[in-house]
Amino acid sequence: MEPNLNDIFSSDEKDILQEIMNIAFGNATADLAQVIDIYVVLSVPNIKVIDIGDLPHYIKQNIPSSENTSILQQKFWGEFRGSGILVFPQTSGKDIAGILDDQFSDDGFTLHRQKTEILLEIGNILIGACVGKVSELLGTFVTYSPPHLIVDDSEGHNNLINSFEENQTAIVMKTIFEFENKNINGFLMILTDNESIDWLRHALQNFMESYE
């Protein structure tokens, strides 16, 4: 059961949020090209409100549990708070290393160890770009915890699911990203915490008023 978005947000508010996301992700794309020298295509974000205990199900549905899928999570704090979750399906260490133009070791053992670290660095930049741009438009800024990789097995999935409170209402903003010419894609979700929803509604109003 998916609660109606209107229960939490008016349709106006929802439109504003969608608009903010569109602008934010557009800005993020432009700046990402500067930062990592690769054009990252971000799809128009899909916004959903997910309620009480439906989150685990949503996560399960949206995150395929399969070999080689890497999931990473990064929490952010401030008036706007929540988690960024990044899912990289089926990518090899070599592909990942290819996103950054650094010189990485060629031998399998070292590369495997480094893959995790490279993923974390890329994830940190991607999540930070999207969350940062949204925050900017909402007139706030956030701080971040270091990102961590979720071990991709059933235990890892459960840990991810359990890291959210049971009766949490979350606004999920989901986007598909693709590194141009690298054949690497995945998706990014920003989940807002229950506590920041009131603040978010307020911030959306302020955003609107600045245009009136």
Binding site: A28, D31, Q34, V35, I36, L100, D101, D102, R113, Q114, T116, E117, I118, L120, E121, N124, I125, G128, A129, G132, K133, S135, E136, F141, V142, T143, Y144, P146, P147
Partner: peptide, 25 residues
């Protein structure tokens, strides 16, 4: 003066990111 360092500086300046440069990498 290398891509990895400058990339992380840029992400701080562009997005207000935090960057974590791990010993492992």
């Amino acid at each position: 003066d290398a891509p990895w360092f400058k990339r992380n500086c840029k992400s701080v300046l562009a997005f207000g990111n935090f960057s974590f440069l791990s010993q492992k990498l």
